[in-house]
Each structure stands twice: as structure tokens, then as C-alpha cells.
Design a protein around this nucleic acid. Structure first.
Length: 927
RNA sequence: GCCCAGGUGGCGGAAUUGGUAGACGCGCUGGUCUCAAACACCAGUGGGGUAACACUCGUGCCGGUUCGAUCCCGGCCCUGGGUACCA
């Protein structure tokens, strides 16, 4: 009987559901293992063949761990809040909850067909009240905590309040927004409103006026990681900078810990590097520059305080808070014009025109604290308000941007560093700034003639002694803007009393998302929640109108899986101390600077509160590569409806047109299907080669518009889920991007058929016998056991599939039908192709699911070779082979080589200088 | 510009990490079975060369280390990804 994958797969999927095969619980008698996939946003398009790649890999690993005696937590859920459902709601009026529900249903059907071992009882959906209860709860905790820089952890805000009332904030070292200094008595005399406003500067979840990325088309602000190349990641709409009052999370407080934590986790070096760059730690100094004729001092940050003597002007970000105040009257007009121009530019324009030098002198002068020299103050958009203090000292001689700016506006340039062996030259003759990473200081007062490194240390000490500034570490990582002016997201558990935000009590959670008549902003520009009726507390205080961003719900979902139904806690102590952290996390690299920063931050915060027992949530992380599309093309002769085959296209003037890859097989077009594909092509004519129409092809992104989307359902229908699973793995290393080409899949199906035939004869009978296996058979199966275990541990699933093919080919050649060999083979296959493995397991008359079998034990004895076939090479070139008994001493082997008749020929009469024998590997004769 | 990956047959890729380059699969060619097709099975398949061997070239390019280099070192070229005035 042949291998009927459709029947088999349906049967076992049914069985798993009925028997709750994948339901797991805390079991302290077994070691735990937590395997997590990045949960998907359920889009309307459903899954294409690229999406399950990571899920298949993690499923194989989960099943493997289970076979090895681990209690494996392997859950799945949905990142259910998001823009597409809301945009659809705006267009059609359909509630995003309905869209989302439908999409989830479709996802679930598709996922079920692939045969995953998820414990669906643990499913989470970020849009459900019993889930976002805990998102809101975490927000309340962040509101009620501040970050103590000294202890480097979150502490209760009450502790801070107590400290303020005792000592003010003069000595406190906490992460905070710019805040006035006050004493205890001042604090105690502040009104409630004043106190609350000050506390907002310290809370980890805080409300503040900040420069934000505003996306007019989406009608919302976006976080830094949601903006790429000046446009929104979702939708690609332009983004402008705007000042708005927004909720933010003080992620920057955790910058150092987020950086240090990277050294403790097993992630790819490249992903860690992306995070390090995003966090962007730099060491330097903060230096105060006085302003001539003003009481103000401008604080600047520099990584090169040694070049202070070379500072010839200062530049402020146009948004710097003192710009207008410091501007001389005669420059007011020009300065405000410039600021206006800067504001009018989109991020995209700004980035595109990075090389365009613009700026404006404000008519004021800063005072170099070391030299007392007066230097002009400019504003320019090359200085960013969000980094450092939004103000710099410009050292044009040694900074390329300052150099270009100085040249453009004709400002002075002073060289203060010279490389060893160089002589200083006139900067007027330079074409670019002078590299100053190494060298010796010149024209530099108290640090003159010191090498750069020493000068940096010396100058920092000097400015600290003179109270001109201090050594400082700066981070690029920004606080995360946490408000979205959208409907489809978590409501904030926040209400306002006299304009001051207060959080709800924990027992009032969840605050459920209200209904609205339209999903658009209100007439007066309020977010959609402004339309909700009665959106206020019982006392009549209005609720917050913004909702939380996408990353809110995904920041702690891995914790919720541990204890998904708990209505009292995010996660119980018991569940958290058993499951602890994610042992293996698989997902795309696109989350490197968003989700993977936020969830690490969120987890560290909960760790500080003692809610979770691990400081880092994801022990090992693997980024699966992208599956690209493989597009096919047809070539239409211009102004006709005639299509010419690939190799003949050069003879005509043709237009290249994408054609649906699903009607192309091995690059040969199915002409009938093509005619039916689109009405325009119904009367198409063809010029063929070898009686076939050959299509062109290219590797592109998998997308509808390229007609290269392959749906897993279709593949499963034609080839089966087990074949799909194996083929996805067979394509190549899990971390590489590679194109999907359905052509190759038949080889995998052929392999499964061949595997099937090892067990089952043409009548559907099991053909196995219980006789002991031969040495050759044992060698084959034990070699495979070793290879598969090694490969799975290394996540080298593509080579495992090859190993299975080799194994089955060899066992077929050996006509092996021994239970001793084929029973373990079925278990080896189970993680990769669970359906066929279950069916064979049943045919083998085993009870229960193969999921609960034991991974076969390797016996190294069977792998021992009795002879070794040495390649014999002369000067590194292999010439012939020599069979030698294993364990033959090297000296004997040398003798055998010299005595071998083939050797004489290759010696060419010369005396060998040396014979190198690498036992078990190779022999090389050096002439 | 900077950072990180990576360049191996017609294609996806393998190579125990310094030891027979091209495993496995696709595709292609020829054959068996069939009225025919599909399926299946058998043989071949890096280039040059040969009737077939022999031989020779060959892992992006140039050079180095080594008995021996796809693997290590130096320089260059190209592709993909990330990032972007970060002081």
C-alpha cells in the first residue's frame, strides 16, 4: 500500500487533539524546557510558505527535547492589536475585533495543518481583556516606580517621595527628566499638583512633553524603531518631528543593564551588535560653556574633551530650549525663519539631504571654559536635540561634520592633535578634517604634548576639579514613546484630575476598550477614544484617550504562557520558578531593535520587582532567515497578445511580465492555466521552444504583487505536511535567507515514500522481522542516531534531512527489514515528520503516541570501522587509495605506502623527504 | 560612510572546522516498465580533455603561511542585511 499522507495526517491531527497529546503542566519530576516562537500578527493575507520556517524548526527542537525526557513548554498565541485591522475598520466600518477574530481563525487552521506540537490551552491574544489586564497592570507598576541609579534598579516611588520630604532632591541619583532642584522644606510646601508634576519626571512610565515622530497619515506618534528611513515601517508614510505630551517608558534608565546583559545570553553576535549599536554607549565628558552677557551656561556632551582647545564655535539643535532666549535681537528674524524651515521638513527630506549644510548664527557667544575665548553660537539641524544635551562644541579640525560646517560658513579651524611623525599644517589648506584617534596634543594649554588617551583622562580630571564639568557616559537609546493616537490598542489605566494623571487601582483592572462610532479622530483632533461615551471614572474624571503601542502586548507574553489563565497575577511564583525563562526563542531579525529591546527592558523591570526570577528573558535566540520568493516571468511581444519562450525572447521586442508561480512547473508554463488566469490572456498565443513555454525567473521578496506567493495549504494538499516540514528544513541553514522553489519538493516526498516502503509492503502489511540486525545495518542506524542528535543540537536541520535520505537509501540497498533498526528510525523521524512517524509507530504495534517514545540510544561500538581507506597524496595531490586495517601503527602504514606498487610511479625516482600520516584521515608523501 | 553576514556546479546547498571539494536533493541526459503519460526503478552529470582511461584546471580576485588551504593571515572586488549627521 502506498503512502497516503492526506489520510494519515488528518488522522493523527485528530488523535492529538482528542488525546491532548501536547497539553503540558508543571511537573517537578522532569526538567523543564521552554521553546518559544515569536507570536504572529494575524494579517488578512494568511500564512505564506515563508512564515512557518521558524515554527517548524522550533517544533522539531521541542519534540526532540520531549523525546529526551524534558517537560517542554511550547506555546503559541497572537499579537492581535495592530494597525492593519484598524485601517480596515476605518475603510469598512467593521470592528477590528471581528477582523482580528477571522484572521486568527484562518491562522489557526493553517497552523493546525502543519502538525505543530503547541499546547493550545495556553494560547494568548494581546487584545483580550484577561490578557491586557496584565499589560495595564505592568504599566501601573512602572508608574509607581522610579529607577535608582545607585542601586541600578527600579524602586517604589513612595520611597522617593519619602526621601523628598526628608532631603529634597539635591542628593538623589535617579533616572529622571530635567528637573529643578528643591529642598525638603520646598517639597513639603509644594501643592499636590506641583508634587505630582515633579514625580512624573521620575516615574518609569511618565507623561512628558517630548519631541516625537508624528505620522500625519496614520494620525499617531511612532517610536524610533517604528520609523525607518524617515517613513513609518507600517505603511511607509512620511514622519515629521513634533513636540507633544506623551506617555513614555524610561527605557534609557536600563541602558547599561541592557548592554551588560548581552554578554550573558546566547544570541548571534550580529544581533547583539545591532543591539549594542542601538543602545549606543559612549564615554566622554559633560562640559559647561558660559554665554557672554547671560547668566546661562550651556551644557555640552563630547567624547573628545581633549580637543576642547580646538573648539572654535558652538552649535545648538534648533529645538534647544534656550535658542530664542539667547538670540540677539538683530538675529531674531533669521533664527525664527531657520527654525521654521527645519520644522517644515519631513524626516525623509532631512535624511535625504544629510550633506546639505544649513545653519544660522544667533548673534550670541559662548565662552570656552579653558581658554576664556569667545566663540560664536550657531544653530544647525546637524545637531540633534535628542542626543546628549542637544548642544555641541564644534572642533572643526578633527570632526568631519564640524569641518564641513566651518568651511561652509567660513569659521576658524584650529589643529590640536598631530599624529606621530606628522608636522602640523595650516588647516586652510585641508580638504577634510584631520584624523585624531591617535596622536599628540598641540596648541592645548595644560594638556599640550600629551598623547590623546592621556589627555582625555587629564582634562576630565581638570574640569572636574575646576567644576567646569564631569566625566559622563552617554547613551543613544531613547525612552520609548508609549502613546498612540489610535483605537485598536490597550487603553491606559489612567485618568486625569486637574490635568494631572493618576493610575487606577489594581482591582479596577482590566479597563476595557470602549466602543466608538467611528475609528477616526474626533472633529477637534482627539484620538478615537474621544468618541467613546462615558469614557471616565465613576467620579467623572476623564480617562486617557491614547492607547498603548504594538510592543506593549508583546513585551511580556512569554511570561503569560507560563500561567495563562491566572486571574490574580501576571504569573504565579510557582509557574515562574518552574519555567523560569525561555530556553530557545526563534524569530525574525526585524525585531532586533524593537521587541527584543522592549521585552528585555520589561523583564528587567519585573525582575527588579521580584515578579520574575530571571534578569534576561531569552537565554538562546535564533533568527530564522527570510524565505524569499522565486518569481517567474513570461515575455509578451510588444503590442501583441503573443508570448515568446524564455530563450527566444531576444529575437523580439518584449515586455517582461510576472506570472503566477503556481501555474508554472519547473519553469515550464501551463498554457491552459495561463489562459484561464486572467481574462486578458484568454486568447494568448505562444511561441514555444522544444514544444514548451519556458519562463524566466528571479529571486524577489515574496509578495502578492509579484505573483510568487506560495500558500502552505496548497503544498500540504499536494505533498503533505510532513513533506512541507522536511522541505522547509532541507532548503538550507535555518539562519540564511533563501528562495522558495517548489520544484525541489518532490525529492522529499520521494524520500518519505521510500521510507514508508522500508516498513510497509504493497498490501499495506508491516514487513518487519525481529531477527538481530547485521553489522552493516547497525552501522547505518547508529551513524544516523549520532548525526541527527548532533545536528539538532546545532540547529543544522538541513543536514539532518540529508542524513535521513542517506540512511534510507542505504537501508533500502541493504534490504533491511529489522525491527531493531527500523523502530529507532521511526523515533528519529518523529520530530521532523510527526504524522508518518505516528502511523509507523502504530503499525509497529506500539502503544501511545510516538511523541512519548524515547530518543534512541547511541552505541558507539557499532560505528567502529575494521579498515580505513586512506587517500594517499603526493605533495598534497591525491593519487590513490590504500586499504589498511584499523589501528595499524603509523610506522607500518609508512612502510606499506613505500612498498605499494602505485607509489613507485609517483615517486618519479625521487626519494621521499617525509611521509605524513594523519591516523584515520590521510597520508601525504612529500617529495 | 560605519557595523555585521556572505561569495563553492545549471539551482538549493554539503565538507567531521587545516586532511579525498561538490554529500543530499532538484534539474538535465540516457535507459527499463507502459499503447501512452504519470509514478517507480537503473545509469550518468563541475569545466577542459579522451572512444574510454590517463591527465589537467577548479571554492569571488591577488598574494602569504603550511607537507597539505573552501577553512588561517594580508590586500582588493562584489552581494545581502542593519544603521545613519550620535558630537
Amino acid at each position: 500500500m502506498e503512502y497516503k499522507f492526506n489520510e494519515i495526517e488528518k488522522k493523527w491531527q485528530e488523535y492529538w487533539r482528542k488525546n491532548q497529546t501536547y497539553k503540558i503542566n508543571i511537573n517537578t519530576s522532569k526538567p523543564k524546557f521552554y521553546v518559544l516562537d515569536m507570536f504572529p500578527y494575524p494579517s488578512g493575507a494568511g500564512l505564506h510558505v515563508g512564515h512557518p520556517l521558524g515554527y517548524i524548526a522550533s517544533d522539531i527542537y521541542s519534540r526532540y527535547k520531549r523525546l529526551n525526557g524534558f517537560n517542554v513548554l511550547h506555546p503559541m498565541g497572537y499579537d492581535a492589536y495592530g494597525l492593519p485591522a484598524e485601517q480596515y475598520a476605518i475603510q469598512t466600518g467593521q470592528h477590528p475585533a471581528i477582523t482580528t477574530e477571522n484572521n486568527i481563525k484562518r491562522y489557526r487552521e493553517q497552523l493546525d495543518k502543519i502538525g505543530f506540537s503547541y499546547d493550545w490551552d495556553r494560547e494568548v491574544r494581546t487584545c483580550e481583556p484577561n490578557y491586557y489586564h496584565w499589560t495595564q497592570w505592568a504599566f501601573i507598576q512602572m508608574f509607581n516606580h522610579y529607577f535608582n541609579n545607585k542601586t541600578q534598579k527600579a524602586e517604589p516611588i513612595d520611597k522617593l517621595i519619602e526621601h523628598f520630604s526628608r532631603e529634597g532632591n539635591l542628593k538623589i541619583n535617579a533616572a529622571c527628566s530635567p528637573t529643578q532642584k528643591f529642598t525638603a522644606s520646598q517639597w513639603n510646601s509644594f501643592t499636590e499638583k506641583q508634587q505630582q508634576e515633579i514625580l512624573l519626571n521620575y516615574r518609569i512610565a511618565f507623561l512628558a512633553e517630548t519631541q516625537v515622530n508624528w505620522c500625519p497619515q496614520l494620525g499617531t506618534v511612532l517610536a524610533n524603531d517604528e520609523v525607518k528611513e524617515g517613513v513609518s515601517v507600517r505603511g511607509g508614510y512620511p514622519v515629521v518631528q513634533k513636540k507633544m505630551k506623551q506617555w513614555s517608558l524610561r527605557v534609557s534608565a536600563y541602558a547599561q543593564r541592557l548592554l551588560d546583559g548581552l554578554d550573558t545570553i546566547d544570541w548571534s553576535e550580529s544581533l547583539k551588535e545591532v543591539q549594542r549599536n542601538w543602545i549606543g554607549r559612549s564615554e566622554g565628558a559633560s562640559v559647561n560653556f558660559g554665554v557672554k552677557g547671560s547668566g546661562r551656561t550651556i551644557e555640552i556632551f563630547t567624547t573628545r574633551p581633549d580637543t576642547l582647545y580646538g573648539a572654535t564655535f558652538m552649535v545648538l539643535a534648533p529645538e534647544h530650549e534656550w535658542v530664542l532666549e539667547l538670540t540677539a535681537p538683530e538675529y531674531k528674524e533669521k533664527v525664527s525663519q531657520y527654525i521654521h524651515w527645519v520644522k517644515s521638513r519631513t524626516e525623509r527630506e532631512r535624511i535625504a539631504e544629510v550633506n546639505k549644510i544649513t545653519g544660522q548664527f544667533i548673534g550670541a557667544y559662548g565662552i570656552n571654559p579653558l581658554t576664556g575665548n569667545e566663540i560664536p553660537i550657531w544653530i544647525a539641524d546637524y545637531v540633534l536635540s535628542g542626543y546628549g544635551t542637544g548642544a555641541i562644541m564644534a572642533v572643526p579640525a578633527h570632526d568631519s561634520r564640524d569641518f564641513a560646517f566651518a568651511r561652509h560658513f567660513n569659521l576658524p579651524i584650529i589643529q590640536v592633535v598631530v599624529k606621530e611623525g606628522d608636522t602640523p599644517t595650516d588647516p586652510a589648506t585641508w580638504h577634510e578634517s584631520y584624523d585624531s584617534k591617535e596622536g599628540v596634543m598641540i596648541h592645548s594649554g595644560i594638556i599640550d604634548r600629551m598623547p590623546v588617551k592621556k589627555a582625555i583622562t587629564a582634562i576630565i580630571k581638570h574640569i572636574e576639579d575646576k567644576k567646569l564639568g564631569y566625566g559622563k557616559v552617554n547613551f543613544r537609546l531613547r525612552d520609548a514613546i508609549f502613546s498612540r493616537q489610535r483605537y485598536w490598542g490597550e487603553p491606559f489605566p489612567v485618568y486625569y484630575k486637574e490635568g494631572i494623571p493618576y493610575v487606577l487601582n489594581e482591582n479596577e483592572l482590566p479597563l476595557e476598550l470602549p466602543e466608538v462610532d467611528k475609528y477616526l479622530p474626533t472633529e477637534d483632533g482627539q484620538p478615537p477614544l474621544g468618541r467613546a461615551k462615558g469614557w471616565q471614572t465613576n467620579e467623572g474624571f476623564p480617562y486617557e484617550l491614547s492607547t498603548m503601542p504594538g510592543f506593549a502586548g508583546s513585551s511580556a507574553y512569554y511570561l503569560r504562557y507560563m500561567d495563562p489563565k491566572n486571574s490574580q497575577q501576571l504569573v504565579s511564583k510557582e509557574a515562574n520558578s518552574y519555567w523560569q525563562d525561555v530556553d530557545l526563542y526563534i524569530g525574525g531579525t526585524e525585531h532586533a531593535t524593537g521587541h527584543l529591546i522592549y521585552s528585555r527592558f520589561w523583564n528587567k523591570f519585573l525582575f527588579d520587582l521580584g515578579i520574575v526570577c530571571k534578569d534576561e528573558p531569552f537565554k538562546k535566540l535564533i533568527n530564522q532567515g527570510m524565505i524569499q520568493g522565486r518569481s517567474n516571468f513570461v515575455y509578451r511581444i510588444k503590442d501583441t497578445n503573443t508570448f515568446v519562450s524564455y530563450n527566444l525572447r531576444k529575437n523580439y521586442e518584449v515586455t517582461e511580465i510576472h506570472v503566477d508561480v503556481n501555474i508554472v512547473h519547473n519553469d515550464v508554463l501551463d498554457l491552459e492555466k495561463f489562459k484561464n488566469w486572467m481574462p486578458d490572456y484568454a486568447n494568448a498565443e505562444f511561441i514555444l521552444e522544444d514544444e514548451k513555454y519556458l519562463c524566466g525567473h528571479a529571486v524577489e521578496k515574496m509578495s502578492k504583487s509579484m505573483f510568487n506567493v506560495v500558500n502552505p495549504d496548497v503544498i500540504i494538499e499536494q505533498y503533505g505536511a510532513d513533506t512541507l516540514r522536511l522541505y522547509e528544513m532541507f532548503l538550507g541553514p535555518i539562519e540564511d535567507s533563501k528562495p522558495w522553489d517548489t520544484s525541489g519538493i518532490e525529492g522529499v516526498l520521494r524520500f518519505l515514500r521510500k521510507l514508508w516502503r522500508l516498513y510497509i509492503d504493497t498490501n499495506g502489511q508491516l514487513t518487519l522481522i525481529n531477527e538481530p540486525a547485521t553489522a552493516a545495518e547497525r552501522k547505518v542506524i547508529h551513524r544516523t542516531i549520532k548525526k541527527i542528535a548532533d545536528d539538532i543540537e546545532k540547529f543544522s536541520f538541513n543536514t539532518s534531512v540529508s542524513a535521513f535520505m542517506i540512511c534510507v537509501n542505504e537501508l533500502t540497498d541493504l534490504k533491511c527489514n529489522k525491527r531493531e533498526v527500523l523502530e529507532p528510525l521511526a523515533v528519529l523521524m518523529a520530530p521532523f515528520a510527526p504524522h508518518i512517524a505516528e502511523e509507523l509507530w502504530e503499525k509497529l504495534e506500539k502503544t501511545g503516541s510516538i511523541t512519548d517514545a524515547q530518543f534512541p540510544k547511541l552505541n558507539e561500538e557499532f560505528l567502529k570501522e575494521t579498515t580505513v581507506s586512506y587517500p594517499v597524496s603526493f605533495n598534497g595531490k591525491t593519487r590513490f587509495k590504500l586499504e589498511v586495517e584499523a589501528e595499524t601503527p603509523v610506522s607500518d602504514i609508512e612502510k606499506m605506502v613505500l612498498e605499494n606498487e602505485n607509489t613507485t610511479k609517483w615517486l618519479e625516482g625521487k626519494q621521499p623527504k617525509k611521509i605524513i600520516v594523519v591516523p584515520g584521515r590521510i597520508i601525504n608523501v612529500v617529495l
